[in-house]
């Protein structure tokens, strides 16, 4: 059974579905997946994300997380400890002044035994590489470090899934890299299901599956390689494609045979080397 499942999910902020923010969304996310949800502002991607742990409830349809219905009040706390959420603004999600005390916030709320909290806090900080900063003032950290603390704060709940709503939008390149590295690690080493909401195509390219949203609907849902082949379509809905993909697109126009789906630096180097080698061989 799917870990997160939306069934005919529709949503309007004022309950009037004639101008719905989400229209009939049916997606299934399995345990251990790394899914990116890509879309421009107003495409409904953040609204969708807020349905995945019960911050918003469907106007129509149903969302289940690990078999629990998000509309079920009784299950809410359990849903939230199963699927944690990281937000865009690093400042506005840190509750306590000191790093480790902030990380302890969720398990404290859950009434977990203090010794166990200690253990979880230490482990969580270790996982995101912030152990060194555990007694630091959260306010003095860089944006990337704050987001890692926010992630650690969720890890301390031992969630099965982490949803990240544009976690890097307000960060500098260094911070973005730190956060992306942490996210990948959580997925590959801790087997945590990741749902990454973003408008950066290079971040989406790191996922194993990309869902493209436009006007409240799912437009594409496939592997990054397949999704970025649709360069024209993505551009038409206001999204970027990786430079490499665009280069392949242009080279094809010049009758140079290249694969369409090239999304990383390394792949691009390999492909270009092949083209250049080809000529040497034919000579």
């Amino acid at each position: 059974m799917a870990f997160i499942k939306t069934e005919n999910l529709s949503f309007a902020y004022d309950d009037d579905l004639s101008h719905a923010a989400l229209k009939n969304i049916n997606i299934e996310i399995n345990e251990g997946e790394f899914v990116a949800i890509l879309g421009h502002n107003g495409s409904g991607k953040s609204t969708l994300a807020k349905h995945l742990n019960g911050i918003l409830l469907p106007t129509e349809g149903r969302v289940t997380v690990d078999g629990m219905d998000t509309a079920d009040d009784e299950a809410l706390i359990k849903i939230r400890r199963t699927a944690g959420m990281v937000f865009q603004n690093p400042d506005n999600q840190i509750v306590a002044s000191i790093v480790e005390e902030d990380v302890a916030f969720a398990p404290e709320n859950l009434g977990i035994d203090p010794l166990e909290i200690r253990k979880r806090v230490d482990e969580a900080l270790e996982t995101v590489g912030m152990t060194k900063y555990k007694n630091h003032s959260a306010h003095m950290l860089s944006g990337g470090q704050k987001q890692r603390v926010a992630i650690a704060g969720l890890l301390a709940m031992k969630p099965k899934c982490i949803i990240l709503d544009e976690p890097t939008a307000m960060l500098d390149p260094k911070g973005r890299k730190e956060v992306m590295k942490t996210i990948k690690k959580l997925n590959s080493e801790e087997n945590i299901t990741i749902v990454l909401i973003t408008h950066y195509m290079d971040e989406a390219a790191k996922a194993k599956r990309v869902i493209v949203m436009n006007k409240g609907e799912v437009m594409l849902d496939d592997t990054p390689h397949y999704v970025f082949q649709n360069a024209g379509l993505l551009k038409s809905i206001g999204l970027d494609v990786p430079q490499s993909t665009e280069l392949m697109f242009e080279l094809r126009k010049q009758d140079i045979k290249v694969p369409l789906a090239v999304i990383s630096d390394d792949e691009c180097v390999t492909v270009l080397k092949e083209i250049l080698e080809e000529d040497r061989v034919t000579d």
């Binding site: 290079d202 430079q243 490499s244």
Partner: peptide, 13 residues
């Protein structure tokens, strides 16, 4: 600092 993707690619080539 970052550089554009293609800058790195051509540097590598």
């Amino acid at each position: 600092l970052d550089v554009p993707m293609l800058t790195s690619v051509f540097e590598e080539l």
